[in-house]
Design a protein around this nucleic acid. Structure first.
Lengths: 248, 248
DNA sequence: CGTGTACTTGAGCGTACTCAAACATAGTGG
DNA sequence: CCACTATGTTTGAGTACGCTCAAGTACACG
């Protein structure tokens, strides 16, 4: 019986960073959960909640965000198919952020914590692989702070599109120069710490410079190196290759 | 033979979030490393480097930061005594950030990865405790993004001082209303994504409102609740209590 | 007593914000 | 087939927060 494609994608990503035996891989693929469709604007998990599952993205995109008392939101992570959102919660089930659909159509698999915990306790190598996945997520988060804190709106935007493009390409969902982005401008603004109006102007400016063409879902990058230069982008932080992984 | 106080502090922090047996605690305390003093403005680790140790802060403060091509810096984490900086690097030895002294006097213990790895492989509960520590660090990082992305300079500053105060108090290094901060204004500016000049004005304004008194190393908070209100601070994200930790 | 480091203050400017409205586009029901 | 509605994008005008450049002050240290 073939396992779910999203799990295959997830395991493939893990194996890019960690060395897993066939046995361990099979053990991960044996896990399953409830596949659900999430309507837009509804929280999958809410801040302060104690969760009992992590979410594997099947199709569409999800985002993790923090919220201020006045309702202002800041997206702190974007998840694409094959990403296990909130793997963190396996170690700290009380989450301090919200998880929401970014796209109008999001399908996820709710993976219960219990079998995941049994898995990491049976296979230490899997525990390390999951831990490493969390660390890679934190590496992206760290870059996000730099992005929001020290780059201007134009650089920030270019940087985000480079990151998402590269991640989509690595996941086999289009190329870095042409992919589907299921997020509207005001959500991008929430990710980059700016207002929707200004977001619009920046995207427009990038389009006029022929650096970035966003039309509805479709994103096209005529000259990727140029966009990367504008964003000061260096993809090393994504930790997507295993050249320097510990192998002992 | 008594172990180093910094290790005691580290283990105490771990135990606030994770359940460890005496045996496991002793195993962690048995680790040691080289104690070194780090002069200011010198990197402990540099981006792109492959590290072979993590750093346990003994005294003073350290910071992790990202750097832009033009040399602009953004601090993404602040570490106080008892914190194991860069525990991340145990899983991903090639680091994408720099680690530097924040204070003029920083003493750390360079803890080699090898014994740490042997430890986590011998004691799965220790691996989980370390993993959980990384997740808590990421929780702080996530809040940092919200702080820099969506709060104005005044809120941001108040929030940072609330966070550091609370962490210092929990570590037994002063109270949230009176502690020693070994960072200069331009470093605070690097942490909050603003210029040193503006940082100065904001601190000054907070002082005039009798919310925050910073004088040299000394930080005093006349009315902590008021400062927390200004910063919209809720300490839950620090994950410093174990009420909701998984105990199974 | 000179030098270096950190802090303080001032003036002018620009990026990004706010408020507001117009314009697409797609879906829905009469 | 055309209002009608909802959602998202685009544009304009005015404002302000935080930046830059620049100078001056306080204090520690050799």
């Amino acid at each position: 019986m073939p396992s779910h494609p999203a799990f295959e994608l997830f395991v493939r990503k893990l194996c890019e960073r960690s060395r897993l035996t066939d046995d361990e891989r099979r053990a991960i693929l044996a896990i399953d959960g409830q596949e659900v469709e999430i309507p837009p604007h509804r929280d999958i998990v809410r801040p302060g909640e104690v969760t009992e599952f992590s979410c594997l993205v099947v199709s569409g995109m999800a985002a993790r965000f923090g919220q201020l008392p006045d309702g202002t939101r800041q997206i702190t992570a974007v998840y694409i198919p094959g990403d296990m959102c909130d793997l963190y919660s396996l170690m700290l089930p009380k989450v301090e952020w919200a998880l929401q659909a970014l796209s109008s159509r999001l399908t996820i698999i709710k993976v219960p914590h219990r079998p995941l915990l049994e898995l990491v306790r049976a296979y230490p190598a899997v525990a390390e692989a999951f831990w490493r996945d969390c660390v890679a997520d934190a590496s992206i988060l760290s870059q996000w702070v730099v992005n929001v804190g020290r780059r201007d709106a134009r650089m920030r935007t270019a940087h985000l599109f480079c990151e998402i493009g590269l991640r989509m390409e690595k996941a086999g969902l289009g190329s870095r120069t042409a992919f589907q982005l299921s997020a509207i401008q005001s959500q991008l603004a929430d990710a980059l710490g700016m207002t929707p109006v200004h977001m619009n102007r920046v995207i427009r400016a990038l389009r006029q410079d022929n650096l970035l063409l966003v039309q509805g879902r479709d994103v096209q990058v005529p000259d990727w190196d140029a966009l990367a230069a504008v964003g000061g982008f260096d993809g090393a932080y994504l930790e997507l290759d295993d050249r320097w992984r510990r192998v002992e």
